[in-house]
């Protein structure tokens, strides 16, 4: 198989996994958070038991898959991108933002959500702090996703936007 065909499969995988990841991120921020604020205590318990863990499962593994497909797609230019060299600075900024977002998912959101959901024992006060931390990390990722998507798209479709 030619290199360009392999790259296409990596790009396809990157887009598929990325849609699952960012789609769920927007679902959490625009739908689930307001829903959980409005729903009864009983509904919240049910959601924490059957809905949120499922969504978080797809969310965190899709985040990892997106990053791995992206890294594979960068291939030999991985270093150029992360060092923001020349025109690789455009995709490199997208890659940096995506990497920070991945670290947020696995390093902040998931460990804190495990306590909120009761998968890891925590007191009621700890759960409150963890919920706030996970919320802010999730909101931060929503902020970062906006420039991240511009730089991802611009790397192949909008190079003329940048002064070259």
């Amino acid at each position: 198989m030619e290199g360009s065909t392999i790259a296409l499969f990596f790009r396809w995988g990157h887009l598929l996994a990325g849609i699952v990841w960012i789609g769920l991120l927007y679902y959490f921020n625009f739908v689930q958070v307001p829903f959980l604020k409005a729903v009864s205590a009983e509904g919240k318990t049910e959601a924490f038991k059957h809905l949120v863990p499922r969504a978080l499962n797809w969310f965190r593994w899709a985040a990892l898959a997106t990053w791995l497909f992206g890294a594979a797609l960068l291939g030999a230019h991985f270093g150029d991108a992360f060092m923001l060299k020349g025109q690789y600075a455009i995709i490199g900024m997208g890659a940096w933002l995506g990497t920070i977002m991945l670290l947020n998912v696995w390093g902040i959101i998931w460990p804190n959500q495990k306590r909120v959901l009761g998968l890891v024992p925590a007191s009621a006060d700890e759960k409150k702090i963890c919920a706030r931390r996970a919320f802010l990390a999730s909101r931060t990722n929503t902020v970062l996703s906006i420039p991240m998507l511009l730089f991802m798209a611009a790397s192949t479709h909008g190079i003329a936007l940048f002064n070259q």
Binding site: N29, V143, L144, P147, N163
Partner: peptide, 30 residues
């Protein structure tokens, strides 16, 4: 002062402001 991340629109606007800042940074770099 309220945290803009507490509101959906505050979050979205922050994203666009950050986009403008990072665009200027990368534009100066390439």
């Amino acid at each position: 002062m309220t945290n803009p991340l507490d509101s959906i629109w505050g979050t979205i606007i922050s994203g666009f402001v950050l986009t403008a800042v990072l665009y200027a940074f990368i534009d100066a770099l390439v």
